[in-house]
Amino acid sequence: MTSSGLVISDEDRAALESWLRSSTVSAGLVERARIVLTVAGGAGTAVTARQVGVSRPTVIKWRDRFAARGLAGLADEPRSGRPKTIDDSAIIAATLDAPPEKLGVTHWSSRLLGRHLGIGDATVARAWRRYHVQPWRTETFKFSTDPELEAKVHDVVGLYLNPPENAVVLCVDEKSQIQALNRTAPMLPMRPGLPARATHDYKRNGTTTLFAALEVATGRVTDRCYDRHGKAEFLDFLKKVAKAYPRRELHVVLDNYHTHKHAEINNWLAKNPRVTLHFTPTSGSWLNLVEVFFGIITRQAIRRGSFDSVAQLIEKIRTFIDGWNDRCHPFTWTKTAEEILPHA
Rank of each mutant, 00 (worst) to 15 (best):
A94W: 13
V292C: 14
A344T: 04
E174Q: 14
G5V: 05
D64A: 11
F237D: 10
L113R: 08
E249I: 09
V169P: 01
D87W: 08
L235I: 08
R13N: 08
P281Q: 07
E11H: 05
N162P: 01
H329E: 14
R63E: 02
N272W: 02
V216Q: 05
S110L: 03
R247T: 12
A49K: 04
D87Q: 13
G70M: 03
N267S: 14
I8A: 04
L149Y: 00
A151V: 02
G230C: 03
T45A: 07
N166K: 13
R274M: 04
R274T: 04
G42W: 11
L250M: 12
N272S: 05
N166M: 08
G158I: 05
I317T: 05
N272K: 06
L181S: 12
N166T: 06
P163H: 05
L188A: 13
S89E: 15
T332D: 00
G73Q: 02
K240C: 13
E249Q: 13
T145Y: 07
E215T: 13
A75Q: 14
D88K: 02
E17V: 11
L149A: 06
G120C: 12
I35K: 01
Q51S: 13
V153P: 02
P147M: 03
I91V: 15
L313D: 11
R50V: 01
T332A: 01
G284D: 08
A93I: 08
K231M: 07
D87M: 11
I91K: 05
E215D: 13
E339A: 08
V59I: 10
A232F: 06
A263N: 10
T222I: 14
F279H: 14
R65P: 04
Y202T: 00
A242M: 10
F234E: 03
R274P: 01
L170I: 15
A212F: 00
A90I: 01
P192T: 04
E338M: 00
G284N: 06
A14G: 01
W19R: 00
T319E: 12
V290F: 03
P57V: 07
N288Q: 10
L16C: 13
R79A: 15
L117A: 10
R50S: 11
R318Q: 05
V25W: 14
S80L: 13
A75R: 13
H154Y: 03
R111W: 05
A43N: 10
D155R: 02
V172D: 03
E77N: 11
G295L: 02
T95L: 11
P281E: 08
L313W: 13
P189F: 07
S306G: 02
D146F: 06
D121W: 07
G158Y: 00
K261L: 11
T319I: 04
R111V: 14
V59L: 08
D223V: 10
T45C: 04
K240H: 14
D87F: 08
S26K: 10
H329K: 13
K203P: 00
I302R: 00
A180R: 05
F320Q: 00
L287P: 00
F66L: 06
S306Y: 01
G70H: 05
